[in-house]
Design a protein around this nucleic acid. Sequence first.
DNA 1: GGTGACTGGATTGTTGACAATTCTCCCGGG
DNA 2: CCCGGGAGAATTGTCAACAATCCAGTCACC
Lengths: 260, 260
Amino acid sequence: MPRPQPDGSRAGSLSSDRPRAGEPARAHAITALRQAILSGDVAPGQRLVEEELAARLHVTRGSLRAALIELTAEGLVERVPNKGARVRVVTAEEAVAITECRMALEALCAVKAAERVTDQQAAALLELAERLKRCVADGDPRKYSEANQELHRTVRVISGQSVAVALLDRLNAQLVRHQFQLALRPGRPGHSLGEHLAIIDAITGRDPEAADQATRRHLASVITALRAAGTAGTPGAAGRNDHPDDTGRTAATARAAPGE
Amino acid sequence: MPRPQPDGSRAGSLSSDRPRAGEPARAHAITALRQAILSGDVAPGQRLVEEELAARLHVTRGSLRAALIELTAEGLVERVPNKGARVRVVTAEEAVAITECRMALEALCAVKAAERVTDQQAAALLELAERLKRCVADGDPRKYSEANQELHRTVRVISGQSVAVALLDRLNAQLVRHQFQLALRPGRPGHSLGEHLAIIDAITGRDPEAADQATRRHLASVITALRAAGTAGTPGAAGRNDHPDDTGRTAATARAAPGE
DNA sequence: GGTGACTGGATTGTTGACAATTCTCCCGGG
DNA sequence: CCCGGGAGAATTGTCAACAATCCAGTCACC
């Protein structure tokens, strides 16, 4: 591939925060990189060259390498032995598979939440429900996304299933891009609202079985939406691209405002 | 620098395999350490000192450090910022929580397996069923464990849910010790045999709903067994032990023969 | 006699340089 | 014109030394 250009992929700017002196050295690299990936400041498929990134984050290559290893374990970056690391791209089918796992785990959390919810927590959930309704009424998908995220998070906290929560966090991190695409679909918030309210009802009603069903229904609908977006949503970039190679592309993908 | 070092037989731990020259350097450290942990050659709670381990595995500290980071992400070791790493100890309650997640995910796999199983795969499952029965009849818990592991593995392969499988592998790795304890209980194999056969029946019968139920029943029974073992199995060590500190040496815990 | 600071050893975190590998691009031959 | 081989650069993997941190035992001081 004739690619003489000086790697003009000055893509993501990466917050050039420098590590707070004295405290964390590679921790800085980890959080900065994760933030950059999740917020879309670096595009999926983007090549992550150690030296370059190290310079940009003001850490040494060794520290950054450690960060890459950890992020690889989190599923955010992909590393091939002697070729380097790149931001992991999640295909549509993978997104579906991941969401199927989410369905299993979130259903578990919902069941547990319905069993353990306290009156105070139930009140918080109901408040959240009002907030969701308001967001839809106002037609504000941005705030709806936020509230939605908070709902799922709250359910997890109530469930007390720290193991499942940890797994879910990792799975969700891999989906930001897809969730983002999903949030753009016009009718979506209105559609998912009902499902969300059903989940809240079931949990506050302390009905585990209903919570299970409601959660599964919700995520099943997310899956069908993902399938639709997967075949139609990526216009030019059909199917697979094992080596999108360069990557270049200005990774301006706006802020991630995931929501389903 | 190939030095024929004496390297006396260090008190029973860690195979002193040296990295095969030329190819993998830190990969060796990872696999060796993982193997050591899973097989019980190093005890849970055991402190993992970088320099010492590096010397023992014939890799440099840097490489070993990378290995530790990856194993930390896998949930096998625990690392506190300036204090060092140790083999993660999984409390009984954590084991229960983990198994609850397994229940959710394995049920998912079982459902998918029931939907996708081919005739050939079904035949393999039935053969496996015969093998299980034979093991119980022969009273050979060791072989039963093997067959059991293979059963679960086969179901996962059939399911085709690579994401769920990856998660399950990680979860299982954290449970080796508890599964081992479980396998020792006398009545256990006979008890679980029925549950296993039910799972096989459901999948070969291509009945997703039944597969879901059978899997859940099986793991629910595992959970109750875990609870029983958890309260009775660790006599003195009730509850938490933040710093078991030193860590018994001589971690001879025999080969792990997990089975449930 | 008890309490607080200190010093010594041990271990982790970080750094920069070196070696190995992979890919690209160029050149000669068929 | 196409193909195989080989320098060359770019990048990753590895190494050994340095600095920062934490723990324990000790000693002076109240």
